[in-house]
Design a binder for these strands. Structure first.
Length: 512
RNA sequence: UCCCCGAUAGCUCAAUUGGUAGAGCGCCGGACUGUUAAUCCGUAGGUUGUAGGUUCGAGUCCUACUCGGGGAGCCA
């Protein structure tokens, strides 16, 4: 689908000129080829005396769209500079609109060259005006021959933390305010943006309503992990534990899931989805856990587990497809520098139907595998990471949906099967990342749900409004949760979840 | 939270059985060049994470702590 975009871009062919409106277009023209990243040629601004004096082209536009011969302005940050003693310099300029840099050629005759060119080193910010010309070099279609250049901000080479070389991700995490200026983190930012846009498109096209569930919640025991307390009380030993005087008059926390509230809307206005931050106060120190992360939770009435699995599969495949279609340059980078198998992995995801096996079948496979497990396999216990990895990576080699888990290891709200031993839960497992989606058909039968609350040791009083949904016009419904950052891990080949969110929050880490 | 590993120059890492701390890259300076992770030459740069301890002597051995990485659990 629309493969022409990528190939046209690779060939560096020109596309039809669509940016004739050189002056502050009210509506930003999104040209087809720029839809690669949907980066507009100009930042749209209302016309007026106080608006931007020099509409700067985005570098993606200059590289792939605008005809040679045009007078243009580019602004960005210097990646590297190469001087020639014959009287000119090359500057690689990047503005984040795409992976590639714009090559600037500055002749010594350009005003300010002698005084400032040495200051335009790695990290410095520039505005350059000049003529876009076809490049004699083989590595770029065009280059910008400067007639004016303005050094906007210097970056002292001795102290600027980013060097013209590879840095470790560990080091870059310590300079999270500068790491988006690197190739990898620029690419992640663009892919992440593409994924978020695709998420909204996916659900909007299917008639789902985007519903905003609360960040602050007083419903405890949602069963998804430790919660952060929200309080305005001074935390003295004497006041600890007494929330009657607190802001909300009872204990309040940051949400661990919007599911219960999403169910309210799903059972009122039809299919909905949430897309919001989520908080877990677990002391988790792994490559796939964050204290603050973004979760997408569709919730659909009149939906059973099979429908839910189908939706999850279509959802993940759409995310993959859009990344390949719209972030070709960034994905090529990930394939070359981050994970040599990422394109193969993603195409494999698109080309095959997700395998679906019941928990019971999974246990049988694990028992029959002949493998020595660190944690023994037995029906009724949770699948361990080593088990899930073996299933999705070695045995099937593709995404896998495991469904119908034992009732005893799953939360109270999942639909109880007729066997009275299992619930209609599903986990989507993918190679390298593990569990990326967890979901279920919800228990919509009042009597069964009440029994389950008791069984799980929960206070039914606390869930009065949740039970009301079953008391009045209850319907079968289902939904799931997708961890955005885990999806980004899957799509980019990145290893550590702290590197696919701009400002990671983990135990002992919230500097930026 | 548990298990394992680590912390030495701006960055990535070396340093024999405990004996005065090195390289590559980067920076800066010079040379060269329509260059493109440019290339070549040179300079500068370190209380070896913190606090104790053992020893004539500790980057190296011991203890505690801090931070980081990998794995596990919790989950998305």
């Amino acid at each position: 689908m629309r493969g022409g975009r990528c190939s046209r871009r690779r060939r560096g062919e020109r596309t039809e000129k669509t940016d004739k409106a050189v002056k502050y277009p009210l509506m930003c023209p999104v040209t087809e080829s720029l839809a690669l990243n949907r980066i507009p040629a100009f930042i749209p601004m209302e016309e007026g005396p106080e608006t931007m004096a020099r509409p700067s082209h985005r570098i993606a536009s200059l590289l792939y769209e605008i005809d040679p011969g045009s007078q243009v302005v580019a602004s960005g940050w210097v990646r590297t500079r190469r001087d020639s003693k014959n009287g000119f310099s090359f500057i690689e300029l990047n503005d984040g609109s795409c992976m590639s840099n714009l090559q600037i050629v500055i002749d010594a005759s350009v005003p300010g060259y002698e005084e400032h060119i040495k200051e335009a080193g790695t990290g410095a910010s520039l505005e350059v005006r000049g003529e876009l010309k076809e490049s004699p070099g083989s590595k770029q279609r065009v280059e910008l021959h400067a007639s004016e250049f303005t050094l906007l901000g210097k970056a002292d080479g001795d102290t600027y933390p980013l060097q013209k070389k590879r840095h470790s991700f560990e080091y870059l995490r310590e300079i999270a305010h500068l790491r988006p200026r690197t190739n990898t983190f620029g690419a992640i930012a663009r892919v992440r943006n593409c994924v978020c846009r695709t998420i909204h498109d996916f659900f909007q096209e299917r008639g789902f309503l985007y519903v905003h569930t609360p960040i602050i919640t007083t419903s405890d025991c949602e069963g998804a992990g430790e919660m952060f307390t929200v309080t305005t009380l001074d935390q003295t030993p004497s006041s600890a534990g007494d929330y009657s005087e607190d802001f909300f008059g009872k204990k309040a926390s940051l949400t661990v899931s919007g599911q219960l509230e999403a169910e309210i809307y799903a059972c009122s206005v039809g299919p909905v989805y949430t897309f919001s931050p989520t908080f877990r106060a677990e002391n988790s120190n792994t490559t796939r856990h964050l204290s603050e992360f973004w979760m997408i939770e569709p919730e659909v009435p009149f939906f059973e587990l099979d429908d839910n699995m189908q939706l999850a599969e279509e959802f993940i495949k759409t995310l993959v497809q859009k990344c390949l279609d719209e972030c070709a340059e960034d994905m090529a980078f990930f394939n070359q520098r981050i994970d040599k198998e990422i394109m193969t992995t993603l195409r494999n995801i698109l080309d095959n139907e997700f395998r679906r096996i019941s928990y019971t079948e999974a246990v049988d496979l694990l028992l029959a595998s002949g493998k020595k497990w660190e944690y023994p396999v037995s029906w009724g216990t949770n699948l361990q990471a080593e088990h899930e990895r073996w299933l999705t990576e070695e045995h099937f080699g593709q995404p896998l949906i495991v469904y119908d888990y034992p009732r005893t290891i799953k939360p109270f709200y999942m639909y109880c099967n007729e066997d009275e031993k299992t619930v209609r839960a599903m986990d989507v497992l993918v190679p390298r990342v593990g569990e990326i989606i967890g979901g279920s058909q919800r228990e919509h039968r009042l009597d069964v749900l009440e029994k389950r609350l008791v069984e799980c040791g929960l206070d039914a009083e606390e869930y009065w409004w949740y039970l009301d949904l079953r008391r009045f016009g209850s319907v079968p419904h289902s939904g799931f949760g997708l961890g955005l950052e885990r999806a980004i891990l899957l799509l980019t080949g990145m290893q550590n979840i702290r590197d696919v969110i701009p400002f990671p929050r983990t135990p002992k880490n919230a500097e930026f």
